[in-house]
Simulated scan of single mutants.
Amino acid sequence: MSPAASAFLDMLAAERGAAANTLAAYRRDLEGAEEAIGDLAAASRANIAKLAGIWSDLAPSSVARKASALRQFFGFAVDEGWRDDDPSGALPQPQARRPLPKILSHNHVDALFERAEEEAASGKPTAIRQLALIELLYGSGLRASELVSLPLSAVPRDAPLLTVMGKGGQARMVPVSERAREALDQWLSVRPSEPASGFLFPSRGKAGHLTRVRLFQMLKDLAARAGIDPAGVSPHVLRHAFATHLLEGGADLRVLQTLLGHADIATTQIYTHVDAARLVALVNERHPLARRGASD
C-alpha cells in the first residue's frame, strides 16, 4: 500500500474514529485499486476510469462502496496537496438501490409484547430479562451489539436517558421510556450477581455479556410463541420498527438520526420510503391544491 493510502487510513482512525471493521474494508478497497492501477495519489484519470471495467463483474452495491472509498481518498489527497485535481469523476457511479428494511406492524409488535409481558409475570429471571431486552430494542432503537454490551453504569439513575457506545466508539444519549425503565428496574432486582460482571445483561457462567446470537435466538423463539413468523423478527427488525413508527408519529428526521446513531442523514432517509403511505396522505390532506379541489 502506498504511503498516501496509509496516511488516509490513519486519518480515518484518528480524526473520524472509524471502527476496526470499517478501516479493514477501506484498506481492502484501496489495496485492490492500487494493485490494479498503481499509486492512487499519482494515478491518471485514464487509469482511474479503467476501474469500471475491472469492477464490471461486481454487484452495484460493491462497486458503489469501492468508489466511495476512493472518492474520500481523493478528497483527502487534494486537501493534503498530493494531487492538483480531484479525479473522482472518472470513477463508476452505479445506481445501487438500497433494499427497504423489514419492519413489524403495530399489531405484531403488540402481540410480541403481550407474550413477553405474560411470561415476565411468572417472575422467572430469564423472562424478565427478555422483556427488558425487547423494551430497549423497540423503545430506544438500540443496535443488538449496543444492547448486549451495555455496562451497568449506563443505566440512568435520575435522568431518563441511557448512555450508549455506538459504532466507531461514538457515545450518544437515547431516551428510556417509562415502560423500559420499569422493565429495567424489574430486571435489576433479579439480575444474578454471580459470576461478577460489569454488564447489564451478563452471560451465564462467564464474566462476559449476553451474545448477539443468543439475543437473536431469544427473539425468534418469542415470536414463534406469540404466533408471529420468526423469519420476520430479529433485533434489527425491532430497531427498524422503532424508527418507522416514530416517523409515522411525526418525529423529525434529524432527531431520528441522532437517536439511531447514524453518522450520515442519508442512512436515516431510507425510512421516508417505508413511510410513503403517510406522506401521500399528508399531501392529499394538507396541500392547498387538495383543499381547492375539494371545494370546486
Rank of each mutant, 00 (worst) to 15 (best):
H236Q: 14
G250F: 01
E285M: 08
F113Q: 09
L161W: 12
D86R: 06
R115K: 15
A7Q: 14
A43P: 01
R292N: 11
N284P: 00
L142M: 14
D264C: 08
S177A: 14
A171K: 15
R115Y: 06
A159L: 14
G232L: 06
P99A: 11
R27S: 11
L215V: 03
E178W: 02
S145Y: 03
L150I: 09
L58T: 11
G232R: 13
E117F: 03
D229S: 13
R214V: 04
P230M: 08
L184W: 04
S153D: 13
A41R: 14
D158M: 12
E118G: 15
A266D: 01
V176H: 09
M11P: 01
G208D: 07
S295W: 01
P87W: 02
L136Q: 08
R45K: 11
N107Q: 15
F242E: 06
R286A: 12
L131S: 02
M173N: 05
A41Q: 01
L210Q: 03
S189H: 09
E119M: 13
F74A: 07
P175W: 08
A52N: 06
R181D: 08
D84E: 12
A36M: 08
P230A: 10
S193F: 00
R239M: 06
A154W: 04
A266S: 15
V164N: 05
L147R: 04
H240T: 11
H287F: 07
A277Y: 02
L51S: 06
P195Q: 08
P160H: 13
A90W: 02
T258D: 10
L259A: 03
E118C: 10
Q186N: 14
A159D: 14
A77I: 09
R278L: 11
R28V: 09
E80S: 13
N284H: 15
L282Q: 10
A159C: 05
P99K: 14
D185C: 04
D10A: 15
P3K: 14
P156F: 05
P288E: 10
V155Q: 09
